[in-house]
Structure formats: structure tokens, C-alpha cells
Amino acid sequence: MNAIISSYCKIVPNKISVGGKLFFEEASEKELPEFLSAAYKYGELNYPKFHKMDKLCKLGMLATELALRNCPDWKALDKSRIALIFSNQSSSLDSDRNHAHAISDKQNYFPSPSVFVYTLPNIIMGEIAIKHKISGENAFFISNQFDPELLFSYSTILLQTTGTEFVVCGWVNCDRTHNDAFVYCVKKSNFKEQNSGPELDHTSENIRQLYNT
């Protein structure tokens, strides 16, 4: 069985591309939260919960939304056969630092449940699952850098041996100076799609190239 990368979205500070084409760019350099907010408006996500998320989830939600939009026929699939595989370097450290800060001052000690809930990296997969009703396999890996071999091999195992038909796969990292997201969709190649996007064979080399360009 062969599989195909059917769409992808990449976000780096102030710039979003979908399927290799520029989707949104901020002319002036903005702080990450302002940039994410502007991209949300430009992309017409219309999902007020977005504003409650931490930066990591906002990055991942935007990239996933835009990658899925570019691959319309995924909606016809059984959502329990769609897997989410994500990875990053910094886990949930951005929110971890916020929670640690909230408990550092004993005179002003107000740990916030809505910050604490984001101190787990896999919450991004929960948010995606809720938004898109995706209920299949989940896995969140931590690697020191983007690891196409790992994502490729685990996606392939799920597609070949578990009844998984489609994988939303990616890297989403939020840290002091290292903020980026790369989300791509993998489908079995026997899955008919009318509106075919920029399709590529599912290989670790292709994944690496898409991430690096």
C-alpha cells in the first residue's frame, strides 16, 4: 500500500504558506499573539474558542485548519479512522513557564485553571479533535528537532496495520525564539479524491523537503 501527502501548511513567524504557496504574510514584524490573531481573522476561522487557547494550540489549530481546507474530501471519511500524530521540541514549555510564574509569588498566588490545562503538549490534539470531530489514534512525540523518519514510520504503521485511513501529522513548537508549525495530511493512495491538491508520495525525504522549504 502506498500513501500520499495530500496537503500541507507551514507557519513561521509572520508568514503562512499552504501547499507551498504564500497564504498570509504580515508586512511589519508582529509579536506572535498579534500575528496569530491577524491570521485567524484573515483565514476566517470563526471559532471563538481559538482566543482561549495558548500560543502552541493557536499555531497548531491554524496550520491544521488550513491544511485540511486544502484537502476537502477528508470530510467524507469515518472520523474514527483519522489519526493525529504530533511532535515538537519544547513540549508545552511556553504555558509551563506561565503557570510556574503564576505560582512564583506567594503573596499573589493565583494558579489559573485555563493556563494549567495547556501545560500538556497533547492538548493541541484534543483541540483539533473537538473542532474537526476527529476521534482516531493519538500520539505526541518529543524530539530535539523535526524528525521526518519518526513521523513517516509511525504514520505508515498506523495506515498499514490499524484501520487508520488518514493521518493529520505535524510539528508544532512554541518557545521563546523557536515558533513554527508544519502540518500535513497523509492518505492511503487508493482513497479517491476528486479535488486533488499538490500530491506527493509519502516518504520521509518528501516530508523533510516540505518542512525545509
Binding site: 493565583f110 494558579p111 489559573s112 485553571p113 485555563s114 490545562v117
Partner: peptide
């Protein structure tokens, strides 16, 4: 429910 907890805070 998380908002409810946040209102307590």
C-alpha cells in the same frame, strides 16, 4: 467547565 473554575479564581 474550565471557565467556571476560572470564575472562581
Amino acid at each position: 467547565s474550565i471557565d467556571a473554575l476560572e470564575l472562581i479564581v
